[in-house]
Computed example of a mutant assay.
Amino acid sequence: MIKAKPAAAFKAFALTPLLISAVWCLPKAHAAEAQPANTTPTAVALPAVGSCTKVAFNSVSSLKWPLPLYLCHYSAAEFNTLKAQPALDKSWLPNKQSYQGLACNVLDSRLPSIALAHGQHWYRQFANNSEATSAVVQLTELISPYFGCELQLTDTGFTDPCVSARWDKLGRLLAPVSDLPNQSLRQFPFRLDNGKVVLGEADAKLSWQLHDFEPNLQDVTVPLLDRIGKGLFWGKVNEVAALWPQLSAQGELTQSEQARLFIMAVSKQQAAAVRFLVAQGLNPQARTEFGDTALSVAKMIESEAMLQLLSELGANSDSQEQ
């Protein structure tokens, strides 16, 4: 079993709804609806049978794009051979519910393909345990379903450089991550059109839509500190500033609470949010009860920008880490 790193950070995040393995998922009543599709369909050449190529999908709806994808064209024999190989999780097949669950646990709204991909032909072959009789096209998102790191290609499939999870060529998990749920890779929707692969369309009338999971900071059913943290995570500094007097009226924040707010801002590399917290008198060197700091998270996500910013703020001492 492969251990997620750093373990202390994950314990803190699992205990509080403040990051990574428990990224806030909006209640169903407040879940953001799909935005109207306003992307121009991207068509790429279908690679020859037995070959794969990297492609990218762009959306004018989000600055986070392009989304890296891996397009493969398997012969029936190759696909059936891959399909027959055992996977870690026998119940890995995605559906609308599992895709929605994935969407609740990712760091970027660009990541989830939601439910459109689940109906692809090769998924049905798995579900029906039927062998392919012709070539199979597969379009895999090269973004980890764990913490959003870009996947690396290997001879046997894919690997996540951040948590060392591994998947086979069909996106089935081979190496689990301790204390985190098993996750298969997401498959992006497409359709075939005269030797071209149209990215982001399940058919000519059903286009992929960017889903937005930004929180509603005015939802009073959510504790104020949680809303503040969510706002920092998503860079909603102006909205956070408007709520801050309410938070101040509740009394002084503990060191652990201060650390968690900094961690939320740093984890999404929100420089303005980090500077806002410092301007409110919060301590960028604060620790959670597990010893995690903004600096330790910046190092974990390998963010040079955050490391430099924290250095400017005096939070760059190695003594701040356990």
Rank of each mutant, 00 (worst) to 15 (best):
M1Q: 11
K3F: 12
K3L: 14
A4F: 06
K5Y: 15
K11T: 06
F13P: 08
A14R: 14
L18N: 14
W24R: 12
L26N: 14
L26G: 07
A29R: 15
A31M: 12
T39V: 09
T39C: 10
T40A: 14
T42L: 09
T42M: 08
A45C: 09
A48M: 07
T53A: 14
V60Y: 06
W65D: 14
P66C: 06
L67S: 04
C72G: 09
H73Q: 03
Y74A: 04
Y74K: 03
A76D: 08
A77V: 13
L82I: 01
K83H: 01
K83L: 00
P86K: 00
A87K: 09
K90G: 09
N95M: 01
Q97F: 11
S98G: 02
G101C: 01
A103I: 06
C104G: 11
L107G: 15
R110H: 04
P112M: 04
S113F: 15
G119Y: 05
Q120T: 13
N128G: 12
N129T: 10
A132L: 03
S134Y: 05
G148F: 03
C149D: 15
L153Q: 10
D155C: 01
F158I: 01
C162W: 14
C162K: 14
C162V: 08
V163M: 06
S164M: 11
W167P: 02
K169M: 13
K169F: 04
A175V: 15
P176G: 02
P181Q: 07
Q183G: 05
Q183P: 08
Q187I: 07
F188Q: 01
F188I: 03
P189L: 08
P189A: 05
L192A: 01
K196P: 01
E201A: 00
D203A: 00
A204Y: 00
D212V: 11
N216E: 10
N216H: 13
V222L: 10
V222R: 08
P223D: 10
L225C: 00
D226A: 12
D226I: 12
I228Y: 04
K230V: 04
G235N: 12
V237Y: 06
N238G: 04
N238K: 14
N238I: 09
V240W: 04
W244Q: 02
L247A: 03
Q250L: 15
G251R: 05
L253M: 09
L253H: 05
Q255P: 07
Q258H: 09
R260L: 13
R260C: 04
R260G: 09
L261W: 08
Q269S: 14
Q270K: 09
Q285W: 11
Q285M: 14
A286C: 04
R287Y: 07
A294S: 11
A294Y: 08
V297D: 02
V297T: 10
I301Q: 09
E302V: 13
M306C: 05
L307T: 11
L310W: 03
Q322H: 09
Q322C: 05
